[in-house]
Computed example of a mutant assay.
Amino acid sequence: MGQQAAKATRKPRADSLRNRERLLAAAKAVFSAGGPEASLEAVARKAEVGIGTLYRHFPTRDALFQAVYRREVEQLGELAESLAEAEDPVEALRCWLHATVEVTATKKGMLAALALAADGQAELYAQTGERMRAALTALIERAVAKGMMRADIGPEEIMRALYGLVGGYYMSGAPDWQATVCRLLDVFVDGLRLPRA
């Protein structure tokens, strides 16, 4: 095996993996806050790595944005799977929606901070959107099957309600907008629950 082939198949070093994780966590925090301070330099400072290390892992802002957002959506999918056996599937749905508010806020903050154009993002949103729909559908179907949630409201309607609330309150700029959205989501979820027999 040649030197180039060996390099291509070599596993990333442990310190490289740690740096990548630190950069993703830092990017989430910095981009969620948005504003003029949401720069790649700010991400590197927060992760306590050099800017060269950031560029080795993520050569562009867009690459970093996509990595953060994909990771967030994957974690939401894993959360839905972990909630599959929850005793109360309506409460599991509530928990997942609250977690989704935070991820949606991250995405909106990143878009505002990076001023990303929609071009080139279609594939990202198609893939992550499908993962989100699958996670939400599984939670809804379980609650309906157990006779604990009304069956006439589907995942598309719930996602539209969620994004409508997030969009409206995020744009208001209120510091406690996430808490407000979660409180209104609680009212919405309570309305989906069927009374116990």
Rank of each mutant, 00 (worst) to 15 (best):
E130Q: 13
L24Y: 00
D152S: 07
V187E: 15
Y163S: 10
A47G: 05
T53E: 07
G120V: 03
R133L: 05
V187K: 13
H57P: 00
S172F: 07
Y169K: 12
G164S: 10
E130I: 00
F58L: 08
K107R: 14
A8V: 12
M132V: 11
A8E: 12
R10V: 03
A8L: 15
G168F: 12
R18H: 12
S39H: 09
A86H: 11
S16I: 13
R142Q: 09
R142L: 01
M1D: 12
R131Q: 13
V30P: 01
L192S: 08
T60N: 04
G129P: 01
S32I: 01
E72D: 15
R183H: 12
E91A: 15
G50W: 07
A42P: 03
M171S: 15
L136S: 01
L23G: 02
F58T: 04
L111V: 12
A44N: 08
L17C: 08
A105Q: 04
F31P: 00
D176R: 11
K46W: 00
G50C: 07
V73A: 12
T104Q: 10
E78R: 12
T128K: 02
K107H: 10
A26H: 09
K46V: 05
V103E: 04
A38N: 05
A86F: 04
G120H: 01
T53I: 10
G173L: 09
M148T: 13
R10S: 14
M1H: 11
P36E: 14
R133N: 08
P36W: 05
L124G: 00
G167A: 14
I51M: 10
G2C: 07
T9S: 14
L54E: 04
L23E: 09
R13I: 00
V144K: 04
D88R: 06
A5I: 06
K28V: 07
G154H: 08
A42K: 07
R70D: 09
L114F: 10
E37F: 07
R150P: 04
Y170T: 02
A134I: 06
L185H: 08
M132S: 07
V30K: 09
A145W: 01
R160S: 11
S82R: 14
T53N: 09
L185Q: 08
V189M: 10
T180K: 13
D176A: 15
T106A: 12
R10D: 09
L114E: 11
I51F: 10
L76M: 06
A174E: 15
G154P: 04
C182G: 05
S82P: 00
A44C: 10
A122H: 03
A174W: 11
G191K: 13
T180Y: 09
V181Q: 08
E156P: 00
L116D: 01
W177T: 08
D190M: 09
L24C: 08
A134C: 02
K11C: 03
Y169F: 15
D176C: 06
C182H: 04
L185M: 12
A145D: 10
L116H: 03
P36F: 07
D15F: 06
V90E: 03
L93F: 06
P89T: 06
A84N: 02
E91Y: 01
E41G: 13
V90K: 03
L54R: 06
I158M: 14
R10L: 11
E78K: 10
T100W: 04
C182L: 09
E123Y: 02
